[in-house]
């Protein structure tokens, strides 16, 4: 099969993106190649069921349970599968832990690979040219775009997802969070902290 077709068939569709999708959906539906009800289930899955709260659950559990964390860092796929978080774009999971010495950050420079079962559909910036181009070369400048400054003696390790392995960052547990329950800890685990472009939220010191 030739891998370059100078006469791309996609150019036969309407140029406007919304009309283009509508045209393709109509053609595929009329040919019987897609089921509109199946599309609704797919959309509902990623809009309402699978998202970054799954990852936050894993992180909060790792913070509270050293044996769970050790198992997660050893074989994340097995551990998250037991929690029901196995699936498309999360078939081979690796968890990497942030410490005072190293800050991990995840990117996919070649496309936009992302751990869907744990974090859902990637945010727009993760798929942007700016993030894909810059995260590997100047991660600290990218972190500054997110308002994050690391200590001078913390090394950055950027993981470029070039295979079917998907990476989850386990952010550092906030200070003074001892004794907090899983739900409270989950609230501190942001999506960005599990990609490595953010930190876990601090304990609310002014809580009533």
């Amino acid at each position: 099969m030739p891998h370059d077709d100078p006469d791309h068939p996609h150019s036969l569709l309407p140029p406007d993106p919304a009309l283009r999708v509508k045209a393709l959906e109509t053609i595929l539906t009329q040919k019987g190649l897609i089921d509109p009800a199946a599309l609704d289930v797919i959309i509902d899955t990623y809009e309402n069921k699978i998202g970054p709260r799954n990852g936050a659950h894993v992180v909060a559990r790792a913070w509270r349970d050293p044996a769970f964390k050790a198992a997660l860092l050893e074989d994340a796929t097995a551990v998250v599968s037991e929690l029901g978080y196995y699936g498309r774009q999360g078939e081979h999971m690796v968890a990497v832990e942030n410490t005072a010495n190293v800050h991990n950050m995840v990117v996919c420079t070649l496309c936009s690979c992302y751990p869907w079962p744990l974090l859902g559909i990637p945010p727009g910036w993760y798929k942007s040219d700016a993030y894909r181009a810059r995260a590997v070369r100047e991660p600290r400048a990218v972190l500054a775009d997110f308002g994050v400054t690391l200590p001078e003696d913390t090394a950055v390790r950027v993981w470029d997802s070039t295979a079917e392995v998907r990476y989850l960052v386990v952010p550092e547990r906030p200070a003074d969070s001892d004794g907090m329950d899983e739900a409270a800890l989950m609230d501190m685990v942001t999506r960005d902290s599990m990609i490595g472009t953010g930190l876990a939220l601090p304990v609310e010191r002014s809580a009533p």
Binding site: P17, Y46, G51, P123, W125, S128, D145, G147, T197
Partner: peptide
């Protein structure tokens, strides 16, 4: 390529046609 622009966690799709494109 310019700055990376962060966004809030709540929005999964930014346009209706995005979700149709994913599902198709």
């Amino acid at each position: 390529d310019g700055p990376v622009v962060p966004e809030e966690e709540g929005t999964v799709f930014h346009a209706d046609w995005h979700k149709r494109a994913l599902a198709i």
